[in-house]
Design a protein around this nucleic acid. Structure first.
Length: 297
DNA sequence: AACGTTTTCAACCGCCCGATG
DNA sequence: CCATCGGGCGGTTGAAAACGT
């Protein structure tokens, strides 16, 4: 959704306020303000945001200028159409770090922490709500990890294969078959994390985050390696020590679920849109609610 | 077409942290 | 140490757009 900045007042009560005797503008930015800010950053570079107002006459706080630049004006910023790989990365990294949006954003070039945060709140939390469970609950996290993420992987792989006729750009598919239990990987019994031909911008970060265990942009961050990721699917060997998950737990059930029967419902594989919403049609919702119910009892 | 509801996302707020004097 | 300041982060808000009736 492309929202033009030229709106009315964002809020009448926020339009202007006085700070230390100086009028501060709030609300949507005008083209003129954007132009001024761009010009300032072009000359002075990023940082020193509080001096923007002094130097340019912009009646904005330094924070507001910084936010506008980072989330909107920056030349490399991209908005909308979050790819499957990006979705998978967000889910994986969020399961690891929680609401560390800026940290997660480091692995999604061009994406801002704000956009990832919005994505999480509007899409993921919505699904949790529909499943009638808390987004932070173990049940929902397990559902994501053992149902949602494998399906995303599968769709990425399917997309990759469907593009395989096209000339490649050197990307390959990294087989992770060895890391997954043979009886628990759905129709193919073989997980392959497809690397993206469709989203090359994310590719290095994706593979780095998934396979290397060291961050692309930061040396201190801890990212799951492919083996770690696969461990999550390897009950009981993986990150989960909760024995209740073994045998009768959601993980096992989720992995053993009748995936082929779901394949034919809308959106599970290939044909649907790029959003996760397509993974959550009524039939799947019913099934997942059953899984959660079984998990609780 | 008109109206009400839901969703999206830009922008704000308050808190926190590190740098500096 | 302590105070101040600038910048970064996560949470929240609300206008506009999209959707449903």
């Amino acid at each position: 959704m492309e929202v033009q900045v030229i709106r009315g007042c964002w809020s009448a009560k926020h339009e202007m306020s006085s700070e230390e005797g100086m009028d501060i503008r709030r609300g949507p930015w005008t083209d003129e303000e954007d132009f001024t800010l761009k010009g300032y950053v072009t000359i002075h570079g990023e940082g020193r945001w509080n001096s923007v107002a002094r130097c340019t006459g912009l009646k904005r706080t330094g924070k507001s200028c910084r936010l506008r630049w980072l989330n909107y004006l920056r030349p490399d910023v991209k908005r909308g159409n979050i790819s499957l790989q990006e979705q998978l990365l967000i889910l994986e990294l969020h399961s690891r770090w929680g609401n560390r949006w800026s940290k997660i954003a480091q692995y999604l070039p061009g994406r801002t922490d704000n956009e990832i945060k919005n994505y999480w709140r509007t899409r993921v939390q919505k699904q949790a709500k529909q499943l009638k469970c808390d987004v932070n609950s173990k049940q929902f996290r397990d559902t994501m990890r053992y149902v949602w993420m494998p399906r995303l992987m599968e769709r990425i792989r399917a997309e990759s294969e469907s593009n395989s006729d096209e000339p490649t750009t050197g990307y390959s598919t990294e087989s992770t078959t060895d890391h997954f239990p043979n009886n628990s990987t759905g129709p193919n019994s073989s997980y392959q994390v497809a690397t993206s031909r469709s989203d090359p911008a994310v590719e290095p970060y994706f593979m780095h985050a998934i396979s290397s265990g060291s961050p692309a942009a930061s040396s201190e961050a801890q990212v799951s390696s492919i083996s770690e990721l696969s461990e999550c699917y390897n009950i009981p060997g993986g990150n989960y020590t909760d024995n209740s998950l073994n045998g009768s737990g959601l993980c096992q059930k989720g992995l053993e679920m009748d995936i082929p029967s779901l394949e034919h419902s809308n959106g599970w594989c290939g044909g649907g849109g790029d959003t996760l919403d397509s993974l959550w049609n009524d039939e799947n919702m019913w099934f997942l609610r059953q899984q959660l119910y079984d998990y609780e009892v």
